[in-house]
């Protein structure tokens, strides 16, 4: 792996003319964007703007129809999803995507195992491995769920599940983190806690954030990219985007709440 992170010259994430077609419909169309290492950027846009689809193209869950994706200068357009994770790309889901029948600790241990060789071990019980367990417990502490470690994930509250969602992504030691509406469905108080947690993340982690709550966006990012109907629409600082009348119009036009 190259040590480009942080030198500022090579973008952490680069999309070039990324396109995804479903049948006759272009969900993402010719989107280009570039994130400097350590940058924190939000992607906003009304429903159907193609934000989550773009995430899936960057993470490799879905192949692009056209265009290129680069991670720290390395072309990953055809790299499978799990290899991209090993290259330092992490991601959370808008709709909570955990292991519902497993305990909280096992959820985190699975995340801690993802990058090592231990995951192929078959003849030694998991509980005899110290390292993944230690990392899982440590992360459990940082998200403040230590007392729920033996709870089955399915039985946890939505707010707790959102925290685990974040914890799983962090355990893959991402250098680039894609956060898909981390505060979705959270109460204002929980949302504020989540925002604080994201703010406190290691500054060298590049963050790309999809978020509807503009207060959250303003607290976290320094730049915003606006997508509309699958296309690049506008880009600028939060203040610029907020004042852009065209941006306000697409939100009104689509019958949605304004971003302000």
């Amino acid at each position: 792996m190259t040590g480009h992170a942080g030198d500022g010259a090579t973008p952490a994430v680069e999309c070039e003319g990324v396109t995804r077609r479903f049948g006759g419909l272009e969900a993402v169309s010719q989107v280009s964007l570039s994130l400097a290492a350590g940058e924190r950027r939000a992607i906003i846009g009304p429903n159907g703007a193609g934000k989550t689809t773009l995430f899936r193209l960057i993470s490799g869950e879905m192949p692009v129809t056209a265009g290129r994706v680069r991670l720290f200068g390395r072309d990953i357009t055809t790299t499978p999803c799990h290899r991209r994770t090993q290259l330092g790309l992490g991601r959370t889901f808008q709709i909570t995507n955990l292991f519902p029948t497993l305990s909280v600790l096992d959820n985190l241990v699975l995340a801690a195992l993802g990058l090592g060789r231990t995951k192929f071990s078959m003849l030694r019980p998991l509980w005899t491995y110290r390292e993944p367990r230690a990392r899982a417990l440590e992360t459990l502490d940082t998200v403040g769920l230590a007392d729920r470690r033996d709870g089955i994930v399915r039985t946890l509250s939505h707010g707790e599940q959102r925290q685990i969602e974040m914890a799983l992504a962090l355990l893959t030691r991402p250098r680039v983190l894609l956060l898909d509406e981390p505060t979705a469905g959270l109460s204002p108080a929980e949302s504020a806690l989540m925002t604080r947690a994201i703010q406190r993340l290691d500054r060298t982690i590049t963050i790309l954030l999809i978020e509807h709550d503009m207060d959250v966006v303003f607290d976290i990012v320094s730049r915003i990219t606006v997508l509309h109907l699958g296309r690049f629409f506008a880009e600028g600082s939060p203040a610029e985007v907020r004042q852009d009348p065209r941006v306000q119009e697409i939100y009104f036009g689509a019958g949605e709440v304004t971003p302000c």
Partner: peptide, 9 residues
Amino acid sequence: SRMRVLGYN
């Protein structure tokens, strides 16, 4: 899908 994103083949 979560397993893939965690780095599992």
